[in-house]
Amino acid sequence: MNLENKKAICIMSGGMDSTLGAYMVKDMGYEIIALHFNYGQRTEAKELSCFKNICNALNISSSYVLDLDFFSKISASALTDKSIDVPTSGLGDGVPVTYVPFRNGIFLSLSAALAEKEGAEIIAIGVVEEDSSGYPDCTESFISAMEKSINLGTKDETKIKIYTPLVHLSKSQIVEHALKLNVPLELTWSCYKDEDKACGVCDSCRLRLNGFKLANTKDPIEYQ
């Protein structure tokens, strides 16, 4: 396939997973249009800073930052409601309180609108099913249904593929793959709680640290 002038919308949070996904898309020869969402999350400023630094590292010339202030009004999540404590006791059963209701569905819907505007063929999102925190909007079945819905709800000539290269990888495999592609992991952020130094005890930090441990390498970001 001739990838000249082929475009991809990359949803990039500033985290390790979406950053690796963007590097994989670049390695495939696509022109990246970077998309970041500010949705009132606790680490919003840090994530935005990481997103900008990663875009610079990838030499991305086209990027969008969308502000979604409604999440704080409609979602009961520890990520957007500071009256709900971020759990630090390890992963439990069921969907955790850090789940933001239908967040990825909303992100993908907005990405689809942008893809139509920009003429992009794929939307890349760094969802991870097997080693995630149990979020229902990170599953392959959900992504497949969203892809079908997006293509039913857009112009006939619009053919969008949702690219999820990490969906069946473990965190250690993600770390290993990122190292092979020389992804600047020191620019990424995963912590749910803090913006200065990562807490090291929230679910996201635990998953990240365990991934580096199993990959037999040191996480380059600073922890408390």
Results as ranks from 00 to 15, higher is better:
207 L>C: 05
46 K>W: 06
53 N>L: 11
60 I>L: 08
34 A>F: 08
63 S>E: 13
11 I>Q: 11
184 P>S: 06
146 M>K: 06
49 S>Y: 11
124 A>S: 13
191 C>Y: 02
47 E>F: 07
125 I>Q: 02
87 P>G: 03
224 Q>D: 12
9 I>P: 03
217 T>P: 01
157 E>H: 12
167 V>Y: 11
184 P>H: 09
146 M>R: 04
155 K>M: 07
206 R>L: 15
139 T>Q: 13
172 S>M: 05
188 T>E: 02
167 V>W: 09
117 K>V: 09
119 G>I: 02
131 D>E: 00
63 S>K: 13
177 H>P: 03
177 H>M: 13
42 R>I: 07
46 K>N: 04
179 L>I: 15
3 L>C: 03
146 M>T: 10
65 V>I: 15
168 H>Y: 13
222 E>W: 07
39 Y>H: 14
64 Y>A: 10
167 V>D: 10
97 V>K: 11
95 V>L: 03
61 S>E: 11
150 I>R: 05
178 A>E: 01
34 A>Y: 11
73 K>C: 10
122 I>D: 00
186 E>Q: 14
165 P>Q: 06
67 D>R: 15
16 M>N: 10
36 H>L: 09
19 T>D: 04
220 P>D: 05
32 I>D: 01
10 C>E: 01
89 S>D: 13
15 G>R: 08
20 L>Q: 03
134 G>K: 10
217 T>E: 00
111 S>G: 15
3 L>V: 12
49 S>P: 01
197 K>A: 12
119 G>Y: 01
94 G>K: 04
200 G>P: 00
135 Y>V: 07
126 G>K: 07
30 Y>E: 01
64 Y>F: 15
159 K>F: 05
168 H>L: 12
211 G>E: 00
37 F>D: 00
125 I>E: 02
54 I>F: 08
